[in-house]
């Protein structure tokens, strides 16, 4: 399972724990739409810190950064781009 697929599965599990079994796409808003709340946001942040080495003290934090699979992919790319390390 690639890492993005791992995040999809993680979101599916978070939604299921809230009794939400509706499907979602990579573009679906998950936090700003209210499907998930701040407690779940922390779980996603911890996953991204631990599995992807993202340091939110450097990137700053806003729920829009983790609102969808696409947003997370962008965050991962941006956080790892060489320009940030300079």
């Amino acid at each position: 399972m690639d890492r993005i697929e791992e995040i999809r599965v993680f979101f599916k599990k978070l939604l299921a724990l809230r009794g939400d079994r509706q499907s979602f796409s990579d573009q679906s808003s998950l936090f700003l739409s209210g499907r998930l709340g701040s407690v779940e946001a922390v779980e996603v942040v911890v996953l991204l810190e631990e599995k992807f080495g993202i340091d939110f003290t450097e990137t700053g934090f806003d729920e829009t950064q983790i609102d969808s699979i696409d947003a997370i992919q962008l965050l991962i790319r941006t956080a790892k781009s060489p320009s940030r390390a300079e």
Partner: peptide, 13 residues
């Protein structure tokens, strides 16, 4: 989780 939520809020714009 709540502690982390508050800390994260302080990292925003």
């Amino acid at each position: 989780k709540w502690r982390k939520t508050f800390d994260l809020a302080q990292l925003g714009k």
